[in-house]
């Protein structure tokens, strides 16, 4: 089907009549109409997995709520994004996450917890994701007690960006974890240290080592941080880099997720190649 034969879909969103091109998701339509829907596992540069269910909305005639991030708009649909049923589901999802994970470095989720009145104190002795921080190299750490199993890192490492497939979901149900084969340490796995998994992680479970060290030494201070855009000088592709610094020291490098070349993803050189500007030994005494 060519673009011009694409038909429009008209439906009702929170009692407003909305028209969008066929194939638009409820989330896209809502954002276009200025209606806010919270998301966690969705990202503009990854295939939707619709796993977190934070974005559910009420679709008239459907037995269950539907995920706005991946459900396409249908003609004559009647959708409510903030009904009582929706609010209850979101509150519960937030309570489930808050009783399972360390969300202290997820300010967006903290705001949602307040907004939906999620109350974790109702649960006595809930099973949590308790895991020690994995520090296996000087580039990034993995703190899986913060991991909400959103699949983003797995997708970024796999066929949404990197095609390295170093990590996968392993185990089942409440034992599920992001893992390499047989929990092999990352340096021995297929990992090529592109850092794309770190770039997409929504909860800081994956974190650049430099940032981790700053936070550990309680020297982390967003007030003293700036971000500078530049172009990666390693090869001819010309990826845009956002260099994040605190007191003029680099702690991470990202790329905008809406960038036409990178979609937010980089290679090891762009991501970590700044160490020639600023040898890591200055900050991590473990690296020789």
């Amino acid at each position: 089907m060519t673009r011009d034969t694409k038909t429009d879909v008209t439906f009702s969103l929170n009692d407003l009549t909305v028209t969008v091109p066929e194939g638009t998701t409820i989330l896209e339509a809502a954002r276009e109409a200025g209606v806010e829907i919270p998301t966690l596992c969705w990202a503009s540069n990854l295939t939707p997995v619709n796993a977190c269910r934070l974005c559910v909305v009420e679709l008239q005639g459907s037995r269950t709520l539907v995920p706005a991030c991946s459900r396409e708009c249908e003609p004559n649909a009647v959708i409510h994004t903030d009904s009582e049923r929706v609010a209850l589901s979101r509150k519960m999802v937030l309570e489930f996450l808050d009783t399972t994970n360390d969300l202290t470095e997820s300010p967006d989720l903290q705001n949602l917890i307040d907004r939906y009145g999620a109350d974790s104190s109702r649960y006595s002795k809930p099973k949590r994701m308790d895991e020690d921080v994995k520090i296996e190299d000087d580039l990034f750490i993995r703190a899986y007690d913060r991991c909400v199993l959103c699949y983003k890192c797995v997708e970024a490492c796999g066929d949404d960006a990197q095609f390295t497939f170093a990590i996968s979901m392993a185990g089942r149900g409440s034992d599920m974890r992001v893992s390499t084969e047989f929990e092999t340490p990352l340096p021995d796995s297929a990992c090529v240290y592109c850092g794309n998994c770190v770039g997409v992680c929504p909860t800081n479970a994956l974190q650049f080592k430099a940032e981790f060290d700053l936070r550990q030494s309680e020297d982390w201070d967003p007030q003293r941080q700036t971000s500078t855009d530049t172009i990666c000088s390693y090869c001819g592709v010309g990826c845009t880099l956002e260099v994040h610094t605190q007191d003029n020291e680099i702690f991470k490098v990202t790329s905008p997720s809406d960038h036409s070349v990178t979609s937010g993803h980089l290679c090891v050189k762009g991501r970590f190649g700044w160490q020639y500007v600023q040898p890591p030994t200055r900050r991590s005494p473990t690296n020789h």
Partner: peptide
């Protein structure tokens, strides 16, 4: 539970608890 979605992965644990 396969563990894919939050309502079931965590909900089934909380219900059991």
């Amino acid at each position: 539970s396969c563990g894919q979605c939050v309502p079931c992965r965590v909900g089934t644990v909380r219900q059991h608890e």
